[in-house]
Nucleic acid binder design. Structure first.
Lengths: 190, 190
DNA sequence: GGCTGCATTTGCCATTTGGCAAAAAACAAA
DNA sequence: TTTGTTTTTTGCCAAATGGCAAATGCAGCC
């Protein structure tokens, strides 16, 4: 819980009373490996802060292949922004890659925080913008590099993930097949 | 100018006085094809609204190749968000792909609009979030599709661009060489 | 130990894409 | 029109990646 508060305080001021209010709205939850936090077709009504563990966002592409769109690691918020904001069914799955500990906020709780805490909207906006910019900065360069460089960059950008995530998830995130990724790893380690 | 106002009104209310204030802060500008709106290494101090024409954002990758990161078309704002917000030198070039007509806002002007117009920050935040989400949604699926599918999706997502943009720009945006793109186009038209 | 189920690696070959240079086409200037 | 410049297409071959199936490795379990 303190992790979340420290995270929020990076983006704005909260007094003790406001901090207590935030805490009171958070529901501590665990999610076991492979379970879904949200599923395609459903309208998301909650936002989670990932305290421990790894999530991935995935979907099925035009050929029916399961694609990992990106990974979410500790100390980040999890939400399908589009669907959440517009109340439309999500087109993606959010799945726990490892056992996870979360803090869950309902849409109503967030609404109340927004109305009660002056700085709240500003904090959330900063977090949202930062997360989206980071996402673009991670994905965008991949198109311009070959598979080996993409894998090496992945190791740099997600140093804690490589040994906790199945090869197949990593491969589809990088836009290659898992056998190609396996071969790339062999070549690198020589 | 009316284009801009209509665009802003999609995201929030502005009364006549506020509209006049916005208009008074905009500097109508033209930028000829191939010229830069902003360059890598410089700290951006302006935001532009693209009324007519096409921009592209580009940079040089690890192999020294010029990569088109994305295109910006009519009725969108142009800014290197990271560099602009943090006052750090940009790592990208923003270039006019065709002759362009712009409305330019200085950082000071935007500051004043933010302080004067209650709804301003909310409007800007919505526009920012929407633009970033769109960007992710355009780029992200490309990694999971082959070059031909990427090109076809490009035609769908940027229907007005294909015949106004050099092949080499499109190719690097799609993550392929221009000869590959040329071959793909030949195969499709059969 | 010996199964069983799952993840990863490997081999083989087909397909896609890249690299490079020349040819062709498109465009602009004189 | 002619000339010169830039963009796009093409040919040829090399390199990277995909598809598929078999082999291997690994962890849990009886």
């Amino acid at each position: 819980m303190e992790t979340l508060i420290n995270y929020l305080l990076q983006f704005g001021q909260l007094n003790q009373q406001q901090i207590e209010l935030v805490k009171s709205k958070a529901k501590v939850t665990e999610l076991k490996k492979d379970n879904y936090f949200s599923e395609a077709g459903k309208i998301p009504r909650e936002v989670a802060f990932l305290v421990e563990g790894i999530f991935r966002v995935c979907y099925y592409n035009s050929k029916g292949e399961e694609i990992t769109k990106y990974f979410i690691d500790e100390n980040n918020f999890v939400v399908d922004l589009n669907s959440y904001n517009q109340n439309i069914p999500s087109s993606e799955y959010v799945q726990a890659v490892t056992d996870c500990r979360l803090l869950i906020f309902s849409k109503e709780a967030l609404k109340e925080l927004s109305l009660t805490i002056i700085a709240w909207d500003s904090i959330i906006n900063q977090i949202t913008t930062k997360a989206l910019v980071e996402k673009v900065n991670k994905i965008s360069p991949m198109l311009a590099e070959d598979a080996t460089v993409r894998y090496l960059s992945f190791l740099e950008k997600f140093p804690t993930l490589a040994n906790r995530v199945p090869l197949s998830y990593m491969a589809s995130y990088l836009g290659i097949t898992q056998s190609s990724l396996s071969r790339i790893r062999r070549n690198i380690s020589n």
